[in-house]
Nucleic acid binder design. Structure first.
Lengths: 225, 225, 225, 225
DNA sequence: TATGAATGAGCTTTCATTCAT
DNA sequence: AATGAATGAAAGCTCATTCAT
């Protein structure tokens, strides 16, 4: 399966700039997710596109810029999803459980995003640092969590003191790990964490993990439980 | 930063095969961890070695085989650490907390391993599949967890029913995520999860998270807790 | 004799794909003929070309594909020459002699082709097997020979029964051997089979060899000759 | 199937120099025959040997010297076979036919020799030129042919004047071509010249070809034959 | 007589990128 | 707005050979 575009490649010419750009971006997301930045090939991305390799340079400037565009796209999708979260009408326990479940669902439905984030971390997020757009990421999920915590402490249902960012981290860790480490975990423990039959089991689990933590005692001295 | 081992580089000739092999392996672990499989360069690995690039092919056969050797090495180190765990004398709650803390410590002290695992998952653990040695990985940590759980249910301190593998997953998720996602998490939330000043905080957190979960009720209907 | 197309080599840039391709092919024919498949060097071929090594990969994909292109080219040239043979107006004896001479001439004027065929046979024609184009080679020479034989048997001038393919083989063997084994034969017998002064001698010889065979008796019992 | 001998290759040590030498030579004959000089690999030859690559250098000095030893060996075997020819008691026609058949048989039973000769010719017999031993090759077959011709002309059975070397060439061409070009000929004409079922057919054919030539008229004007 | 370890040089191939219209 | 042709630089890998005992 040689990818190097020799002479004579005849792509379907088109005249819709925005569509061409989006086409490239969609393919790039998948390729960068599947192979990482250095593993992805400009030739391969081009081959899976309606246009040619030349257009990638025309629209994005180069591999790195295309990757950053992918990154920005991926994060903006995630942020938009978080903005749609609305749990203010639920009681704190139900709300925090709902937040955990939405986080769970979002991870589950964005496997490419997970891989891209994993790749970014391998190279120390150096590309995120290069992106102006990504520098000003706000994170709705944490504010949502903060509001729920406030209500929970006020009503007394939450007894363990925890920072909203830490709470978000605990939830994310669980949801992310299940997606990110599916293959090594599966290879070692013979258990596919993404088995659809186990989905609800894990979805409930993160809710219980987090609510049992919050409603339990804080501090070192466990009570009579 | 010269990379090509061209003429002029004078490697110290040696006659210690095992040392030469280990030298290459040690450097390779760091390079593959830092840049992933496709990002790592055989030239670069060789340059950081006492020997030459040629020796990598002499001892390992190629980039891929070297990578697999790195993988096998990394996993065998992890497995050996798990084998040394001994928490049988502690009461179940203390034991499970201790297990979580050891897992935490092991993750913290093996950042290269984390990155290699992350990279492996990006390419769907295809290299692990190619390794005969890795196919027969046993995982002491889970048996340890299983024994603790058994004792905990027997004595009644653990009330929530959970599978040992799932327990291990919850703990691992937390410990792994903190290491693996340090950079993106830090960029977005402005919080360095590896800040030494926060280390004990997080170390205690995973213990509490897991013990509050186990000692809480199981099932959907929360009792009087 | 510089081989590596290193920096400093300034190739004449051109925009004529077909010419570039042909240029590479022409050089490759000579190199593969002179050194065989494994003895030929992509660097050396490139150096003798108007373009660079990179273009060989751009146009042909690799050393092996280039070699197969050379093979296809060489055989198509030979086939085209055979197609131009027209001896239908000559009497059978003159016609078969003429066919032998044309075969002789064609071998003489295509020394590269002879070497390439010799090389192919050393590796059991495995590259020919890989070529789709070569799989469907038709061979006009044999049909021509068959028609001559038919006429010769009909008129009674040919008395020895022989298969057209075998006839072609006898002629080819002589013409090919003279070209292919020039060097070892010369070294051992001190006679250069390609000495221009002997050319007509050998050219006549194959004609006589073949006509004396055909006009002689067939079978084991020699007549009055 | 990697051949590069990495560390740890443990060959069976032996103490029989002559046998070791012969072992290497035998393997080398096959490898050089199968792949030509540049296609053969010292590593591969060593791997198929009872000893190690190092011994090739120890006994022969290098790839080239090994190849020349192979060449000398191959030619000395051929020469020895020719020396055993004895056809003096047969009448000239039977004798020349017998000589042709022995030549045929010798080619048939030495396929490796054929390939080595073919390879030598591709590189213009430059290695033969380097060998002192091969410079002084005498060729019994031609003297045998010369003696037969003499008797044939004396008795009048041979009417066509031909030089002994040319006669040998005609016979060799047929016998050699059948072996050397088996694969390309087979690919193009769909006929395996080495098919055992056709062996006697071809063996008789060269005898008839050559006797019909010798017993026919010489010169340009064919008589009543 | 024998050998395990090591290696310089060069080979084929790949990659992101730019030229020139 | 779009593109076919071309490419420098470097990557992974292989080869015959020598080192050092």
């Amino acid at each position: 399966m040689t990818t190097m575009s020799g002479p004579g490649t005849v792509p379907a010419r088109q005249r819709d700039p925005e569509r061409t750009r989006q086409d490239i971006l969609d393919v790039a997301v998948k390729e960068f997710a599947a192979r990482g930045y250095s593993g992805a090939r400009v030739d391969e991305i081009a081959a899976k596109t309606r246009t040619t390799k030349r257009m990638i340079y025309y629209y994005f400037g180069g591999k790195e810029q295309l990757y950053i565009a992918v990154l920005e796209h991926a994060y903006s999708v995630a942020r938009d999803a978080e903005r749609r979260i609305d749990v203010d009408l639920l009681d704190p326990v139900a709300a925090i459980r709902r937040l955990a479940e939405l986080t769970f669902d979002h991870h589950e439905s964005h496997p490419d995003f997970i891989k891209i984030v994993a790749g970014e971390n391998i190279n120390n997020a150096e590309f995120i640092a290069k992106s102006k757009a990504l520098a000003e990421l706000n994170t709705p999920a944490v504010s949502v969590a903060a509001r729920i915590l406030e209500r929970g402490y006020a009503s007394g249902v939450f007894r363990r003191r925890v920072d909203a960012v830490d709470l978000h981290m605990m939830v994310s860790a669980f949801c992310y790990f299940r997606m990110s480490n599916r293959h090594t975990f599966g290879a070692i423990f013979g258990r596919d964490m993404l088995d659809p039959g186990r989905r609800d089991h894990y979805r409930a689990m993160i809710g219980e993990l987090i609510t049992s933590y919050l409603t339990g005692d804080s501090g070192a001295a466990p009570a009579f439980s």
